[in-house]
Amino acid sequence: MKLRKKLTVIWTLFLFLPTWFGHTAEPADSKLIKINVKGLTCPFCAYGLEKRLQETGADNVKINVDKGQAQISYTKQNAIDFNQLKEAVKKGGFTPGTIEMNAKGSLNQKDGRWTFKLADSEDLFLVKKDEVSEKMINEIKEGITVRVSAKVGSELQEGHSEHPATLKILSYEKVK
């Protein structure tokens, strides 16, 4: 009887451990956004930030207090509203810093500009011209699916309402 009780306690603890330590499995094929959050110093203050970011339709929100970074992943939601994300950080009590995105999409050329269109979405980004993006454009053909890791520019492109943001490509890989 005593052993049974012990086993019940151990089993209950085992069930609660993942929740207790906040470990959740990362979806394999998701859009991953990393926002540097300025001012993030106390975990107990991160509760509001986490809730606000979850309200943007995120499937998973992870906060790294020591790095001062929020990692948001979307699997169900196609379009991503970066302004909404920034607003969520502000309402959560902090200042949004640089945003990085890791997502699948395809490269397209229009009016001499290269754009990146998110897979399963109408979201378009202007690809910033630099050494890495030029190399990618040369390697990856138009329309081929590619996964990029890139910095999302905060500046709005005036006169290009369909291009709300720019991408500075950090790395890329062809999706088979």
Binding site: C42, P43, A46, R52, D66, G93
Partner: peptide, 19 residues
């Protein structure tokens, strides 16, 4: 002194967290 908690008797200037 990472990961601070709120004071017990004093106060913090943070007004967030509750949401």
């Amino acid at each position: 002194l990472k990961a601070n908690g709120p004071p017990i008797h004093g106060d913090t200037a943070f007004v967030v967290g509750i949401e």
